[in-house]
């Protein structure tokens, strides 16, 4: 069996004439947590819905746990957890009923874990779902997704409505879930510091295309900022050198964002421009913004 529990091949999706995903090739290795980043409308939700078979791709295909997304068996569905951006849970149910209702579909339903998550999230079995706040509803959705110990967990902005404490609780739960190294998680979010904390990999979508997908540490080793200082004014346009994503100079100093063998590029730039070069690591947020210039 493939050791990529989540895979897409040339996955494209159009809504009418509007392309939402263009030729996405993604393979998530087992045991990894991948942060899915992208601006609003970049295609994050569309990608997750295609993976779940909730949307039909226009071209290409995707597979989850070895089965095509468009034809997932109940057995495989029971091994997938999903937290939608806007959870839909029957408002007339009580929390405990919603849990029992969903639990009926999963052979691996963990009642002890549910009790623990209810306490952590300060949810109560007797509460009506319809009376929950947006944040509480999101917590309930997370609880429902985690309670079956899913092998594949697809999370579509699961923490958008949570306060910082709730977010931290969620991250801890996620860490607990993945600690055995067999779960595969795809987490779409706008909160880059959360990705830096819990993700091993990162995938960046821009206008439906997969801009980068890599190990987080590797990506951060490969994309850095260089600060150049010289004794004479530096050229205003970037030198012809592969790997320079962005360059701007003012007088004898310049800033460049580079990608690749950073040390080599830094040395080359230093020689070409007769400048001192300092290499600065970028936060994921800065890195994301650099790739969207």
């Amino acid at each position: 069996m493939s050791d990529h529990p989540v895979e897409t091949r040339d996955l494209s999706k159009n809504f009418g004439k509007q392309p939402a995903l263009c030729g996405v090739n993604l393979a998530l290795p087992r045991g990894t947590v991948t942060g899915l980043l992208g601006r609003n409308g970049a295609g994050k939700t569309t990608l997750i819905k295609c993976l779940l078979g909730l949307l039909q791709p226009s071209v290409g295909e995707s597979r989850v746990l070895g089965e095509p997304s468009t034809d997932l068996s109940p057995g495989v569905k029971a091994r997938i957890g999903y937290v939608p951006q806007e959870p839909v849970i029957y408002p007339w149910m009580r929390v405990e009923q919603a849990i029992a209702y969903q639990g009926a579909f999963y052979p691996t339903w963990d009642r002890d874990l549910i009790q623990q998550l209810l306490r952590t999230f300060e949810l109560y079995g007797r509460q009506r779902v319809g009376a929950l706040s947006v944040g509480q509803l999101q917590k309930l959705a997370i609880l429902l997704a985690l309670a079956s110990h899913p092998e594949v967990l697809l999370l579509d902005e699961p923490v958008a409505a949570l306060d910082p404490e709730g977010r931290r609780d969620f991250l801890r739960m996620l860490v607990e879930l993945v600690a055995d190294g067999t779960r595969t998680v795809l987490l779409s979010t706008h909160i880059t510091t959360d990705v830096e904390r819990v993700c091993s990999h990162v995938a960046i979508l821009k206008e439906g295309r997969l801009l980068r997908v890599d190990e987080l540490d590797r990506l951060r080793d490969r994309i850095k900022e260089l600060r150049l200082t010289a004794t004479r004014p530096l050229p205003e346009t970037a030198p012809e050198l592969p790997g320079i994503l962005h360059y701007s100079a003012s007088g004898p100093s310049a800033v460049a964002t580079v990608e690749g063998d950073v040390a080599a590029i830094a040395a080359q730039l230093g020689r070409d421009l007769h400048a001192d070069v300092a290499v600065v690591g970028l936060s994921l947020e800065d890195l994301f913004l650099e790739l969207h210039r």
Binding site: V33, L171, R172, V175, E176, V178, A179, G181, R197, V198
Partner: peptide, 9 residues
């Protein structure tokens, strides 16, 4: 990992 809420890896 759990205390810091970071990936175990």
């Amino acid at each position: 990992a759990s205390a810091l809420a970071v990936n175990p890896m």
